[in-house]
Simulated scan of single mutants.
Amino acid sequence: MTSTSPAQVFAVITAAGSGTRLGSDRPKALVDLGGMPLVEHALRNLHSGGVDCAVVTAPPDHFDEFQALLDTAEFRDFVRVVPGSPLSRQASVAAGLEALAQTTDALSDDSPVLIHDAARPLVSPQLVSRVIDAVRAGEQAVIPGLAVADTLKSFREVPEASAGQTQGARYVEATVDRAGLVAVQTPQGFPWKVIRELHRRAAASANSEATALTDDAGLAQQAGIPVRIIAGEGRALKITTPIDLVFARAILAQDAQA
């Protein structure tokens, strides 16, 4: 009996976010965390989790900086850097997928492809592996999700002042039942044939942040594809504000003591 090696695993890492809310004048993915840029943490964890080849979509005006950072013996044969799109995250992912198609002939219809945000640098290799395993088991779309801990409320904004209400202020309308909600993380996983076709079908909506979707699972939902939720993890937090960096540094410190 002959054995067949599993299909190689590929990833697109979106790294075009600005560092404005972090108080940085550099792209968020280049912000330092424990002596290493966020994007480098993310790439190392993806590789340790089973990713064989990755494309990083960099801000076009910082392309050379990303290229120089990742043109090392560690990453040269693993990572390709391409310009992301200024139009939307969705357009940047599409550009990364197109680069994958041009980079390798190892892609097959069932090759697992992960879409990951560089702003989630501390995702564990174990979570990466679980996403890959779920795709290999036949799932067409896989996302990590965390139970929502906070109380959630919907609100309305008052356009004009009235008795007891301030113009332009927000007032609670209802408390949202959080029992059926999860906070979604990355990496999100798909077979190559599925994710490529989803982005092709939705290309028009990627031309503006107003119409683009904020994650790739949303494209699967639009197409009627079931999206499997697996357990996420606290360490895969998204770095958005300075307090997130504080939490991330604490995670690194705990790792160093383990």
Rank of each mutant, 00 (worst) to 15 (best):
S24G: 04
A203H: 09
L127A: 04
L97E: 06
R156V: 08
Q126D: 11
I243K: 13
A11K: 03
V135Q: 11
E74R: 15
A134V: 03
H41R: 05
A183K: 09
G17M: 07
Q188E: 15
E160V: 15
V82M: 08
S111W: 08
L38H: 01
A206K: 03
A16G: 15
A118Y: 04
A11I: 07
A212E: 06
G23H: 01
A137E: 15
R200Q: 12
I239N: 11
A258Q: 10
A248V: 03
Q188Y: 03
A206M: 12
T57M: 10
V79G: 08
D255M: 13
L22M: 08
Q126Y: 06
A7T: 09
L33G: 00
A68E: 14
R156A: 10
W192G: 01
P60K: 13
A11W: 01
Q254P: 02
W192M: 00
F190N: 06
A217L: 08
A223P: 08
V227F: 07
L252P: 01
P37F: 00
R249H: 08
V39H: 00
W192K: 06
T241Y: 12
L127T: 07
Q185C: 02
E98W: 06
L38Y: 00
L127W: 05
P144H: 00
I229K: 13
R228M: 13
A223V: 04
P60M: 12
D177G: 09
S129E: 13
T2W: 07
G234N: 13
R130H: 09
L219K: 05
Q221V: 14
D105W: 03
T57P: 06
P60N: 09
L70H: 14
A149M: 05
V131I: 10
I225G: 07
Q257Y: 02
V176K: 08
G164P: 07
G49P: 02
T4A: 13
G84T: 11
S18E: 10
S18C: 00
G234C: 07
H62R: 13
S18P: 02
L70K: 14
T186G: 12
D64R: 14
R26H: 06
D52T: 04
L245N: 05
L181G: 00
L107Q: 06
A161Q: 11
P242Q: 12
P187E: 07
L127G: 00
E98C: 12
A141E: 03
A73V: 14
I132P: 09
V55I: 15
S154A: 12
G234K: 11
A204W: 08
G234Q: 12
A210W: 11
K193M: 04
Q221I: 15
V113R: 04
V123K: 02
G49H: 03
T214F: 11
D255K: 04
R201T: 14
G168N: 06
Q188V: 11
L46T: 02
P112F: 02
T2C: 01
P121S: 01
L69Y: 12
H62K: 10
A141Y: 08
D133A: 15
E40T: 13
S85I: 06
E139N: 10
A29M: 03
P83L: 14
V9T: 14
A174L: 10
P125H: 04
D133T: 14
S205H: 09
A137Y: 07
R170P: 01
P187H: 01
A236R: 05
Q221H: 11
S3G: 04
D32A: 12
G168S: 07
P121E: 03
E173F: 04
D52R: 00
T166F: 12
D255Q: 12
